[in-house]
Design a protein around this nucleic acid. Structure first.
Length: 273
DNA sequence: AACAGCACCTGTAGGC
DNA sequence: TGCCTACAGGTGCTGT
């Protein structure tokens, strides 16, 4: 479900809601949501006072005052909410009860989301690329790679850049005017520069709109995002492109949908743009 | 190296 | 209504 802008929105909400609170009780309704020992997870978290909340890529990190650190990855349908709405009840996987009487619920219809104790303090992780929020970071990451893989696959690779998912990869490529199947190594310097600028831009814009709500994403206080009103290609198969009017096409890349405008995103290099 | 296929799971939408 | 298929914002494994 959530990509970087949605996770960032959730993290900002969590900071306001749970920092400083103490977990009086933790209940695991679906223990497989916990990676590693569920018993150990429960033992470590009970009584923990939350000192800080962090984001790294699509991971949420929660640090306790005693240095305990755990992560939450929401995968496709994970949600963190303060209030348990009736339809969410059957998807409740983990419940955190705080000593002030408030609660935080981990809801996850498809059960893909994972919580786990993190071995070290902080969210350093050797498998994650840099944050794609600055053009210079994206540029450096793309320039360091030489591969014939499609640019879309590269953007989705969390080891290259951490946080971009299917929506924002498609939107960033549309904004840059680059076809998703173009091999990275075929991109000109100017084209690499365009992607490096468009990816942070679409992410920052989406954060400003508190993310994209297509189905079940909600911020911690239950609000929808607004970025779905501003998508140019994702989920718009057959609709006219806002720039040139061509019908948006959908193809499969690495078994995932890719949406693009055949008029604005040519398959061949377009040095003239 | 990089791909497809499948696994993990459930819900929803559309065709018949 | 039911049955079927396809599809979904993610990641990780296996085989080729």
């Amino acid at each position: 479900m959530p990509e970087l802008p949605e996770v960032e929105t959730i993290v900002r909400g969590l900071r306001r809601q749970v920092v400083g609170k103490t977990m009086a009780a933790v209940r695991l309704f679906w223990p497989r949501s916990i990676e590693g020992s569920a018993a150990e997870f429960h033992r470590q978290l009970k009584g923990m006072t939350v000192a800080g909340i962090f984001r790294r890529g699509k991971y949420i990190g929660v640090e306790g005052e005693d240095g305990t650190f755990f992560t939450i990855h929401l995968r496709m349908t994970g949600k963190l909410v303060r209030e348990l709405a009736a339809p969410d009840r059957k998807h409740l996987r983990v419940q955190f009860m705080f000593s002030d009487g408030t609660a935080l619920y981990f809801i996850d219809a498809r059960k893909f989301g994972r919580l786990r104790l993190w071995p070290c303090r902080g969210l350093s992780c050797p498998g994650l690329g840099p944050e794609p929020l600055r053009a210079s970071a994206v540029l450096a990451a793309l320039r360091a790679l030489r591969t014939m893989r499609p640019i879309k696959s590269v953007l989705l690779d969390q080891a290259v850049l951490a946080g971009i998912g299917n929506i924002y990869a498609d939107e960033a490529l549309f904004a840059a005017g680059i076809h998703p199947l173009r091999p990275l190594s075929s991109l000109s310097g100017k084209e690499i520069l365009r992607v490096s600028r468009s990816a942070p831009r679409v992410l920052h814009e989406a954060i400003g709109r508190r993310g994209t709500t297509l189905r079940n994403y909600r911020s911690v206080d239950g609000r929808s995002g607004e970025n779905q009103e501003h998508l140019n290609v994702y989920g718009r198969t057959g609709e006219p492109c806002c720039e040139c009017g061509s019908p948006i096409e959908r193809i499969r890349i690495n078994s995932r949908s890719s949406h693009f405008c055949p008029g604005c995103q040519k398959k061949m290099s377009d040095a003239g743009r």
